[in-house]
Design a protein around this nucleic acid. Structure first.
Length: 762
RNA sequence: GCCGAAGUGGCGGAACUGGCAGACGCGCCGGACUCAAAAUCCGGUUCCCUCCGGGGAGUGUGGGUUCGAUUCCCACCUUCGGCACCA
């Protein structure tokens, strides 16, 4: 295909650009320039992820309205981007906070809602009954409110979710079809967290009901000696009522609810309370006690487990602590014991056998469980896209009709976060008629997670001025999927999962014609400064503005990529960039000399000519297939060294010089364009990328390496046309080799044509 | 604990398909130019031994495969990253 979409992750306009941005956008710029000069039509847009916490916090920090701060930052950042020479298509620039953009966030939300992929449900949050606010985990200390010290309770608050779990399997499987680094794929796999096992029904006589558990180890079913419910499990309340110790249970459940997940995990000892009730192990009818314990989590599996203390570390700990029976069911050889008719079966076979048995008796089935949860995307913050919903006493949550979009974010004085959504204070805005009955209702006051904006921005770039639709499908399908996405590892899970989810959902809705957004992903590393991660608190942030001033944009671009492999973490040192400035100056001088006195005419075959063709081949491969940006620069430096040695009077000097300038253009567009003019040409950016002449790459001699028992003993030039026998003869003739063959018997001779001869002596 | 990436000179790194380890750059050493310095240019720079011819060791550790291993296999150590009372 001759069309290419090169995309870098759009920035938060929270302040100014840092070196991480310099890396990402320089890579993108190099690739788009390289592709253009290779005859491709390239889309290379830029925009701003201008809603959300980073921008809002920047506004709070700097004082002022988020819109003003955001737009000022955008203006400054765009200016810096232009100075860096990053060639973006500015006509396509979009920012998430503009109504022309977020109108389509709202539209897409309505589509997903209609399709059942967005929904609203109660979800537990930490709530201070005194201050009447939701508390973030960080605001709860020892179960008490940070502000007033009141005991925090758990409250079910209605929140908006996208059904990411509907695509859990596909999000996992489709990783095979995209070209992303293994480490990013691994992170996504961990995040999705698929486990295979069984769902087993345990009857509870007390409640006349079955409780399902999920287990990855159905083979250990006979070893289940007790049963544990998460404190939040819906059946706990019923058990509490019948329990001999309801007070203790109730207190335990309340305390567990306000603990943070990390606190639960960090607990020194397992805690729990016996409910007084029993469950029936479906495989042997054993009556096993039901406990409530906070080491079982409500949001994984079914919120209930069968506890097998002999073969699960956590269950074992719990059994020790509370003196519960421990029954081993697998011996040292991995075969089942104490498991009735399954005794003697290897554990992996027993899994299937027991699941089959459960199936035929209607007590369980094979099941898969995911760690991935639905994406809760409502935020109690001001600076975000309003969710287009009106609550009506009669009709509940009613979507705002499409033709009334956008629901514009109102300007309010006090936008700072305070637990309840700041938008609630915009009373006039909140009052709105129910779209169904016209009776006064209230607008949704929560806003969307900024990851909603970034889940589809790359589609909007394709058709940024469309007033009738978020995009025209034909145009979007023409450019997409993105051929080359570039961004930091920090977005390996959230953004990159959400965007993949969005595209799959949009494809199911018929809005796009593809199912994966980003075909190839380049994950750049972190940029550190002199050994430490840059951060504002450490005061060691350096930005591109200062560097452009001191070294020039092109030296900064070059050095940024020369430090090391761009997909690994790297360390910015001032000494290093000095070296690059030296290289650029040297290039200027050399090209100046060549322009002045190098002979005209085509380059004759020579070492310099061949080196030049070799460099074309290497740089082309490094920028194309390998994406190895540091080695391409090294190759260019080698050629410059050769040219410098040969001198400006060399008959091949002009060809070598023009080639260097042409090849360095994606990295150093300003310098290259200037030098190109000095050499008497114009518009380098529009010149086709050089092509290496295969014929010129062929050498007529090569350096033969001669080894004795694998050790190099001599090396010398030989004719490329020499036969294998001749190579052996020449090798044997070497006096240095002779010294090591002396008297010994050659048992074997290995010849690698074009490379080496190895004598094996005994 | 599970998953992933990585370990090479004083430093950043290179070696793409098993074939010359250390390209390219930084730093350092020496020299030229200069009254001097800066800039620039030239030469050297893995370690050890050397009679200056060369010899030996060497890519986290220990084994293996191979004529030959930074590269492939096994075990281990260390660092970084992700997930994690995930049943």
């Amino acid at each position: 295909t001759n069309v290419s979409y090169v995309l870098e992750m759009w920035p938060y306009p929270s302040g100014t650009l840092h070196m991480g941005h310099v890396l990402v956008y320089t890579i993108g710029d190099i690739l788009s320039r390289f592709r253009r000069r290779n005859g491709m039509t390239v889309l290379h847009p830029m925009g701003f992820d201008s809603f959300g916490l980073p921008a809002e916090n920047a506004a709070i920090r700097e004082g002022g309205h988020p819109r003003e701060i955001t737009e000022r930052n955008i203006t400054n950042i765009v200016a810096t981007m232009k100075r860096m020479g990053w060639g973006f298509d500015w006509d396509r620039m979009v920012s998430a906070h503009e109504p022309e953009y977020y109108r389509w966030d709202q539209w897409l939300f309505l589509k997903l809602l209609e399709a059942g992929l967005a929904y609203r449900k109660g979800s537990p949050v930490k709530w201070c009954p005194n201050d009447q606010v939701v508390l973030a985990n960080e605001q709860v200390h020892d179960g008490r409110c940070e502000y007033c010290g009141t005991e925090v309770v758990s409250k079910n608050l209605e929140q908006w979710f996208f059904k990411t779990t509907a695509y859990a399997d596909e999000l996992l499987d489709d990783l095979q079809n995209i070209e992303w680094a293994d480490r990013i794929k691994a992170m996504q796999r961990n995040w999705i967290g698929r486990s295979e096992g069984a769902e087993i029904q345990f009857p509870i006589a007390e409640l006349d009901e079955d409780i399902a558990v999920f287990t990855t180890r159905p083979d250990t079913l006979f070893g289940a000696t007790f049963f544990v419910l998460a404190p939040e499990h819906p059946l706990v309340e019923q058990l509490v009522e019948r329990s001999p110790n309801p007070g203790e249970l109730r207190e335990y459940v309340r305390k567990a609810a306000v603990k943070r997940g990390e606190e639960r995990a960090a607990a020194e000892e397992k805690t729990g309370v016996f409910t007084g009730a029993y469950a029936t192990n479906p495989v042997n009818d054993a009556q096993i006690p039901i406990w409530v314990a906070d080491y079982v989590l409500m949001d994984y599996g079914t919120g209930a487990i069968m506890a097998v203390p002999a073969h699960d570390e956590r269950d074992g700990e719990f059994a020790e602590r509370f003196d519960l029976p421990i029954v081993p069911v697998i011996d040292e050889d991995g075969k089942l014991v104490n498991s009735a008719q399954f005794d003697g079966l290897p554990a992996d076979e027993a899994k299937d056998a027991i699941v089959d048995w459960l199936g035929t008796h209607g007590r369980g089935k094979a099941a898969v469980s995911f760690r991935l949860r639905d994406w809760g995307f409502s935020r109690q913050r001001y600076w975000g896209c309003p969710i287009p919903i009106v609550y009506c006493d009669d009709h509940g949550a009613v979507p705002v009709p499409e033709n009334e979009l956008p629901v514009v974010l109102p300007d309010i004085e006090d936008y700072k976060p305070k637990g309840i959504a700041p938008l609630a204070s915009a009373e006039e805005w909140v009052r709105a008629p129910c779209p169904i009955c016209g009776k006064e209702g209230r607008r949704e006051v929560e806003t969307m997670d900024t990851f909603v904006d970034s889940s589809w921005y790359f589609l909007r770039y394709c058709d940024p001025h469309n007033d009738d639709a978020p995009w025209d499908r034909e145009i979007v399908d023409w450019w997409n999927p993105v051929d080359q996405y570039i961004g930091g590892v920090d977005h390996a899970t959230m953004h990159l999962i959400y965007a993949r989810f969005f595209i799959k959902a949009l494809n199911d809705l018929g809005l796009v014609g593809f199912r994966e957004p980003f075909q190839r992903l380049f994950s750049n590393g972190w940029v550190q400064l002199r050994g430490t991660k840059m951060s504002k608190t450490k005061g060691n942030v350096i930005g591109p503005e200062d560097l452009i001033e001191e070294y020039g944009a092109d030296a900064v671009r070059l050095y940024m990529l020369f430090i090391g492999p761009a997909n690994e973490d790297m360390d910015w040192t001032d000494g290093g960039v000095d070296g690059m400035v030296r290289f650029v100056r040297r290039l200027y001088r050399l090209i100046g000399e060549v322009a002045e006195r190098a002979p005209q005419g085509s380059a004759p075959a020579s070492d310099l000519t061949r080196k030049t063709h070799e460099t074309i081949a290497r740089v082309t491969d490094d920028l194309g297939r390998r994406q190895s940006f540091n080695t391409a620069i090294a190759a260019l430096m080698e050629l410059v060294n050769e040219l410098s040695k040969a001198g400006a009077d060399d008959p091949a000097a002009r060809f070598a010089a023009e080639t260097v300038v042409s090849l360095i253009q994606p990295y150093a567009p300003h310098v290259a364009e200037e030098l190109w003019e000095a050499l008497g040409h114009e518009r380098l950016w529009a010149q086709p990328w050089p092509v290496a002449d295969e014929a010129q790459l062929v050498r007529d001699t090569f350096e033969l390496v001669v080894q004795v028992n694998g050790k190099v003993r001599d090396r010398f030039e030989v004719e490329a046309s020499a036969s294998e026998d001749e190579l052996v003869e020449r090798a044997r003739a070497s006096s240095r080799v002779q010294a090591h063959l002396d008297g010994a018997q050659v048992r074997k001779t290995i010849v690698v044509p074009g490379k080496l001869v190895n004598f094996v002596v005994g």
